[in-house]
Write a protein that binds this DNA or RNA. Sequence first.
DNA 1: TTGAAAGCGTTACCAG
DNA 2: CTGGTAACGCTTTCAA
Lengths: 337, 337
Amino acid sequence: MVSSSSVPGTEPRKVTIHDVARSAGVSRQTVSRALNDKDEIDGTTKQRVLDAARALGYRPSRFARGLVRQDTTTIGLVIPDLLNPFFTEVAAAALEAARSRGWHVVVYDTADTAEEERGTLQVISSQVDAVVGYFSCPEDEVELFTRGMPVVLIGREHRTARFSSIRIDGEDGVHAAVAHLVARGHAQIGMLDHDGRAEPSIRREWFTAAATSHGLDAGMVVGADQSADGGGAALRTLLTTHPDITAVLTFNDIIAIGALREARRIGRSVPEELAVIGFDGLQLGAVVEPPLTSVALDTRKLGALAIEQVARLLTGVNPLAADDLVVRAELRLAGSA
Amino acid sequence: MVSSSSVPGTEPRKVTIHDVARSAGVSRQTVSRALNDKDEIDGTTKQRVLDAARALGYRPSRFARGLVRQDTTTIGLVIPDLLNPFFTEVAAAALEAARSRGWHVVVYDTADTAEEERGTLQVISSQVDAVVGYFSCPEDEVELFTRGMPVVLIGREHRTARFSSIRIDGEDGVHAAVAHLVARGHAQIGMLDHDGRAEPSIRREWFTAAATSHGLDAGMVVGADQSADGGGAALRTLLTTHPDITAVLTFNDIIAIGALREARRIGRSVPEELAVIGFDGLQLGAVVEPPLTSVALDTRKLGALAIEQVARLLTGVNPLAADDLVVRAELRLAGSA
DNA sequence: TTGAAAGCGTTACCAG
DNA sequence: CTGGTAACGCTTTCAA
């Protein structure tokens, strides 16, 4: 697939520490000392070595160095789509948490395809010490490739989990959202769910439970494509079949933003004539008009928690139990509901 | 799930290929063969080795492996703020381009601080084969730490460049934007520039040139904080001092989106009473209402070009010249102007 | 089919 | 302050 472009003879042999040593007329040891800023070296010698190194364009091999001093930790961060603001936020949070530990993070964007995901799995184990992220393929497969390497799944809404996984608990948040709407006098509440996956989302289940507990019809749900356009289209569909709906919850903020836009287009003012509540609490929700009310997730905590668990798994001390690997979503009021 | 003993000080010595070999009663290379799916091995032996490896929780050292077969390329991607949608898009593009080459990408988010940038520079050279990204510190410093490693700067709007750098050329795009506004009858056009850096931005220079060439007042410029709120505040300031302004260009889309929101708040309809044109052409511009007209950059091309140049630098064949390392911005009409 | 030996490029540990 | 020598963990010859 990828042709390794190699013009014969152009490939310059890699300059090693040995070459520098010879060029500077010292031993490899001394070169190492000069380059690593050790004390036990004469100033003149050091300068001579440094000059030689520069002249030769020498760069130490990260592999050789890593082999001998086993102190660098690199984790692999696997996300389905960096352009999806939710994953962007999680990634940023994970990067920050990793950086504070001095870790390096290799990021893999699987483009939401099983193929890329598989490709990533194949290569990742030879590049990192642990994996954090999101996989949609069967856990067996993930386990197969990651071997004994620590794996922390983020926000995977699955029931079984052989790995550590950070669970997102939106039950209370969604309940609060529905309660809020009811308190505002809404009696017909719909939902724009996530389309695509086979089974109904767990977020929908939360909605169903909350609506039911308030004695509402929990059946006014349509699937939406995971995009703003998808949210708009879904809202249109929903209002066609259920014209008396006055409020909608959505699978996530992207869909909610699309619904917001659609509402404006069809002339229903928000929140007066249509209340909209998203899910995720993205920063993006603050730039739309009106600002989006959302069942908000603390994405920084999400990322930080994942990295924290990786750290524990890596050292083998006190890994967090499933009950502690939870991030709870909370209703965050803004202008749209 | 195997939990390694969680007693402090019990840090288990790393399992090496040697341990597996001994456990399976074979030599090290036989283990290597089994693990790497080579043909020259008996099925039974292979299974025995695999079992032993699994039982011991063996994972090959990526350093040792990398040392002996030098075939993996890892590049470092340095960005100021992953949460800034512009950099998100660039990062996604770079990831995609790197992935298509089978490269790994270590991402560093410098949080827009000189300190983190410096920290990154210190460690990056020992982790990657080349660097792509954005630095705000003096180029001398960058050079000092990156040694002879290929470095490609993205969209750095500086005049001097000792490294390869992808230049963003918005001159024609901004000219087209101003021409468009003039054609629509706008005679008072302001700009919301980027605040913060010392010198005026090059984007402002483009605006000045374009406005002047149309015989307009190019002096109606205020600085804006790089955020939606900043854009809103800046618009307010601008309209206070120049109430007759009917159109604004902005340093980037984030600021423009803030301006859009502010316009709605103060009751000026867009584009009828105030035309707004952003810069960058972010996907984000499509979800606001009205959709944002923008001098758009092809961020995918930006990322792809950077990776392409890294590839050439790495192999040493035909590196692109400065003239080819340019991404031109183009006016993309939408609803806001 | 398997094993012994020779590196890969670097740093750590002792000598001098 | 400097230089041998021995790892580090793995893969690649080359023999057996």
